[in-house]
Design a protein around this nucleic acid. Sequence first.
DNA 1: CTCCTAAATAGTATCTATTATCAATTGCTA
DNA 2: TAGCAATTGATAATAGATACTATTTAGGAG
Lengths: 141, 141
Amino acid sequence: MTGLLNELSAHGYKITPQRRIILQVLSESCRHLSVEEIGDKVKQIEPGISVATVYRNLNLLAEIGIVSRLDLHEGPARYELNQGHDHHLVCLGCGHAIKLGVCPMQGEIKKIIEESGFEVNSHHFEVTGYCQECQTRHRKP
Amino acid sequence: MTGLLNELSAHGYKITPQRRIILQVLSESCRHLSVEEIGDKVKQIEPGISVATVYRNLNLLAEIGIVSRLDLHEGPARYELNQGHDHHLVCLGCGHAIKLGVCPMQGEIKKIIEESGFEVNSHHFEVTGYCQECQTRHRKP
DNA sequence: CTCCTAAATAGTATCTATTATCAATTGCTA
DNA sequence: TAGCAATTGATAATAGATACTATTTAGGAG
Ligand SMILES: [Mn+2]
Ligand SMILES: [Mn+2]
Ligand SMILES: [Zn+2]
Ligand SMILES: [Zn+2]
């Protein structure tokens, strides 16, 4: 946690109570949270904090790499503490994003893209479907 | 073009002037268009058509597979006539989506996902960066 | 061909997610 | 500890898309 605060300082940003609390909430969660979820938890700790502040700081934290943003193809973006580059299996039933320990930007695909002359900035790979727990629930009807 | 109209009928949907024009616009374009762009072109042909109708019909056409929707990570969705499953190199400079002739959902990655017990519904792979034409423009400053 | 009805439409209101604005406050540094 | 840029809370504004509703229409039955 203090490491994260140092990271803020190192980038020239101030350590505010709001930022402490946002980082606390993120560090206490084991899954991706929407801004609304983060805001709710933040307000349980300190009710006066504005949702605008939550948005602002998540953008900032994502920019400097402290958090990573997960853009699903519908609904709001979700955030978690950055745990390095990864991709996810996103469950349409329960919404959980299961980490996939492998990245498609390597081997043959990487070579094809490089050879095309395109200058790669970033990439996204995301699989949607149903996790094992949700498969039973979903199969029935 | 008549093939596309038949497809609509075959699914039990009516062939309306609005739908004809939307399909005409899509078939005359060689790239992904936003709803706004499609709406503008549609209104050049028939000014009375509502933007709501454009949205409604693009959703419908996507649902029955006549068009494919491209969700970028920011900005509005973009559409084109469905040319089969594919992925894109999306240029941050000019916005063009260059088709990538290869899919990461195969080989080792596919196997890993299958073995995880996750039931795959769909997948997205998208690379962002700068196309060759835009690289020069972008490098300078 | 004409009639009928479910489907579709135009116009507009509403919604969700996010950013912009701005006056008031506050963390940091000298 | 004073000063000031950075940050904040409150709220307005925006973008993109969907919901609603009265009206029109495509296309099948007769
Ligand atoms: Mn990757
Ligand atoms: Mn694919
Ligand atoms: Zn699930
Ligand atoms: Zn380009």
